[in-house]
Amino acid sequence: MSSLLSKEFLRRLDGLTLLLRRPVSGHLRGQHRSKRTGGGMIFSDYRPYSPGDDVRNLDWATYMRLDRLVLRLFEEEADTPIYIFIDSSNSMLQADGGKFLVAKKLAAILSYIGLLNHDRVSLAAFSDGVVRELPGRRGKNQMWRTLHFLEALKPSGITNYADTFKRYFGGGRTRGLVVFISDFLQQEPLELSFKPIKQYGHEVFASHVISPSEVSPELGGEVVLVDSETNESMNVHLTETLLRQYREAFVDHCSSIENFFRRSGWGYLRINTDDNFEEAALIGLKKERLTL
């Protein structure tokens, strides 16, 4: 079917539903709870009857008891916009492009689930800004287009979250789910970068893609480390002590990122390119209660 997702794996995704922690603000019918009341199935409240209200929702038992017309209100189920951001900076090319492939696969999974649930799925590849964008689409039939979009992505440029978010959300976007897939190798503090998203009240799910060469680099001696994004070189004499310190620092780095998202009440999933992606993704998403 696609280089990103196999038929068998798509079939496993067919029964999954995206779970959102807060009511959505979608305008079209969907499968998520919304703040609007209407023709849903879940009882929400009572209010006095007004002429013109749907008499089918009158609570006749109350009328019999109190001789007052009271209307039963139900939560209306709506769709939600899903904004999937894929880090396409040069750093994602590491591990022979494994990080970027994992990012695209995860984006494909979440797009598929969103499209299945009649959500409006938008895709944006970014580095120091949005490089390519697929505007919001609904319906399972948009999956082909989504996959083509993802397959066509090529990494380039340097990472700049803040600019990306400001430009993307500055034009006014419906509040929804922001899925952020990146290796989080940037110098700018995350608090600053994600400030616009917090302001607009979006729900965020971060996926942190790491590679074994980042966790435990197999280097030693005199080495010139060249930054894949900035091309900045750094002469280092890698001793075992220094490598151990790096490994500890990288763990701290990952922990600090996870802590940021947890503190913000957002979901966080770390995926290693060495892991079995399909299992890790499904288990991780369920564990993080993004899917059901």
Binding site: S91, Q186, E214, V223, E229
Partner: peptide, 19 residues
């Protein structure tokens, strides 16, 4: 000197700064 292309020097800089 061996040249190694790494994703980013961000973590390396922190390590070097401390050490």
């Amino acid at each position: 000197v061996l040249q190694a292309l790494v994703s980013s020097n961000v973590v390396w800089k922190q390590v070097i700064r401390v050490s």
